[in-house]
């Protein structure tokens, strides 16, 4: 027991644990929208796109949140615009925008060299750089997103389920979609430090998919996905310390373990429920 509690003596671990738990909850909440819209690929691509902004801001020397934030928001709005217009294949356009941005990040690091452990941390996550300001930022962001989802619940549900009829009924579906893309970009930005670029998508998709296997209700799915995300973050971060592996893989593997258990326990009913998600 004493061994289990030992990491809590370190401030960096306490900060990392709070960020991982809250970030897991945030990704779980946002992930419901992502998987039900069949946008798992966008979540994956967007996290890679933000890596380009991360690399550029790290090398230019501007604030990481500002640089990657602007980059991420621009990418999110671009993806949203392409997806809504459907003038070219959305998947192809997203692939071009996001992988080009990721490649730019890799190229910038290759040409100008890596600084500290920021490269690996950005890719796979690390709690070493998490300070109190990060904790405050992620908590504030999560509270804002949760409040927005609560107050905009009906608009979000109608827009996600039936955008055509929602628009005909006077719901501003374009605004809802743009707002959710901004929330997605901001959430990825805020959680990138702990989860890493390559693994954020799993934290968006796994909790929501597991929640879908457990319920047929949109509201319960939101609550379950948030809880599963938070649990994955908390347990994964503890395992990360004790097993001496990076935080990102540890958190994702806990989520994958929960998925495997629920997949087995819920049987064909759960699999039928989840058949339409994470496309």
């Amino acid at each position: 027991m004493q061994e289990l509690l030992r990491p809590f003596e370190f401030e960096f671990f306490r900060n990392g644990l709070i960020v991982a738990t809250v970030a897991g909850a945030l990704c779980g909440l946002v992930g419901v929208y992502v998987v039900l819209k069949g946008m798992s690929y966008i979540g994956h691509g967007l996290s890679h796109a933000i890596f380009g902004g991360f690399a550029a801001s790290a090398l230019i020397g501007i604030d990481f949140v500002l640089g990657a934030g602007i980059w991420g928001v621009a990418s999110a709005l671009m993806i949203n615009g392409v997806t809504r217009r459907r003038t070219i294949g959305a998947d192809a356009a997203i692939g071009v925008i996001t992988t080009a941005s990721f490649a730019l990040g890799l190229a910038l690091f290759a040409v100008f060299g890596r600084r500290g452990n920021s490269f690996d941390a950005a890719l796979f996550g690390s709690i070493l750089g998490v300070d109190t300001a990060d904790v405050v930022a992620i908590v504030v962001l999560t509270v804002i997103v949760a409040a927005a989802v609560f107050l905009g619940y009906r608009h979000l549900l109608f827009t996600t389920f039936d955008p055509e009829v929602a628009a005909a009924s006077g719901v501003r579906t374009g605004l809802v979609d743009a707002a959710m893309m901004l929330v997605l970009a901001t959430s990825i930005l805020a959680t990138m430090q702990v989860l890493g670029v390559t693994l954020i998508a799993a934290s968006l998709v796994i909790p929501a998919t597991v929640a879908r296997m457990l319920t047929d209700s949109f509201s319960r799915m939101l609550v379950l996905a948030t809880g599963i995300g938070a649990t994955s973050g908390f347990v994964g971060m503890n395992l990360s310390y004790h097993l001496d592996v990076q935080s990102g893989p540890s958190i994702v593997l806990v989520g994958a373990g929960i998925f495997a258990v629920v997949f087995t326990v819920t049987g064909t009913r759960g699999r039928a429920r989840a058949a339409g998600v994470a496309a």
């Binding site: 039900l36 549900l157 996600t160 389920f161 039936d162 879908r212 319920t215 047929d216 209700s217 949109f218 319960r220 799915m221 039928a272 429920r273 989840a274 058949a275 339409g276 998600v277």
Partner: peptide
């Protein structure tokens, strides 16, 4: 319609 969407 997405008949798998979680809605009653």
């Amino acid at each position: 319609v997405d008949w798998n969407f979680p809605v009653t």
